[in-house]
Design a protein around this nucleic acid. Structure first.
Lengths: 209, 209
DNA sequence: GTCTATATGGGGATAGAC
DNA sequence: GTCTATCCCCATATAGAC
């Protein structure tokens, strides 16, 4: 079980993973097992190299983790920004919010190990690593705040909600789905839809629906 | 810094912490620093005893963590059940939901290290420890499912929402506040109110409000 | 770029004195 | 109940050969 878990990319080069390959594997392992449980030995083994070789690509474990964290935010940020900017001119506030929510959730639950790893391990890494990730996080948060402010200014959102608090609640709630989401019980797309329904209109039964 | 951090309970007994005292300290450290960063040596030092002495009270680190996790759920479960059962006869569905949300959030954000430690470290502990906590978690989840089903059956909640999914979204969102809640920016009580507003009625501005 | 070998430190856990 | 002493394992990280 310990000697042949690595899958080589192809046969011409023996373990031609490179820096990015190591990073991909690290992101996957961090997402699956958390920060504390993933040692450099595990990463190396999964990459088909020896632990010491990692230090050719990275200066420390923290450097790997920091790179994973930054990439994770960038992926979801990109996904959200594109989803909103691609909307046709004149799209209504509700549809804009749904697009943003969907993009965030899809980046998290589908495909990307980096963004899910970020959410999963951010609270587990050393303080210095968290601090290093803060600027990148801040940029994404600012994107959300700008979007929410815009919608509030045009009168689409209730005016008594604090934007920062609203953003924290929204992103926090979306990120929490990572802990229990199961694709066998419904797609990320469907979950995104349910979530937007609840967040936009609430769960109480109303006369006007 | 390493020799006198322990505060003795009183002067008559030197480090009379006992099993419960060790557990209290462990819960606080787990909440503050996460599972991986808290060693038995740290717990012992904070308790004013030596690491080896821990094994008089507990058989392993996992046994300590498991005890903390179970107590954490029990506290929040108790808090939520009492808050709902104390409501006067004939309380409306909306007020019932607000009470349950408030109780969960207060147990998490005020006072209790155990419940916040549970949320914080559950995803970090070994699989066997997580499994041991599942029955206790399940009982609390069942309490929520029963409450939500009841409200849906009397027509207070939208009828197209899956109860399990609704509970996962709700509790997940509430738990996420732990990551960013800051008492200097508003009380847990106030946050609970904002949260209930959003969850019950949504964030879109509506004509009927 | 990757290897082997190793330094160094900290972790959980146990044994036996007091 | 707590101490000291110690075992054993695994972690990050480094050095130098290939």
């Amino acid at each position: 079980m310990a000697q042949n878990t690595a899958i080589k990319v192809n046969e011409t080069s023996r373990s031609a993973v490179g820096r990015d390959g190591v990073l991909d594997i690290a992101a996957r392992l961090f997402r699956e097992q958390g920060y504390g449980s993933v040692s450099l030995r595990k990463i190396a083994e999964a990459a088909g190299i020896k632990a010491g070789s990692i230090y050719y690509h990275f200066g420390s474990k923290d450097e790997i983790v920091a790179a994973v964290l930054d990439a994770g935010i960038q992926v979801v940020h990109e996904s959200m920004r594109e989803a909103v900017s691609e909307l046709p001119e004149g799209t209504g506030p509700e549809a804009i919010l749904r697009a943003a929510i969907g993009a965030h959730l899809r980046a998290l639950l589908d495909v990307c190990d980096y963004s899910s790893a970020n959410v999963r391990i951010f609270g587990q890494v050393p303080q210095s690593v968290r601090d290093a990730n803060l600027p990148t996080r801040g940029a994404y948060e600012a994107e959300w705040d700008a979007l929410l402010s815009r919608l509030q200014n045009v009168g689409a959102l209730k005016s008594d909600v604090d934007i920062r608090r609203l953003r924290l609640m929204l992103i926090g709630a979306l990120n929490a789905t990572l802990e229990w989401f199961d694709p066998d019980r419904g797609s990320a797309e469907a979950l995104s839809c349910t979530y937007a329904d609840v967040f936009l209109n609430g769960i109480l039964k109303r006369q006007d629906i």
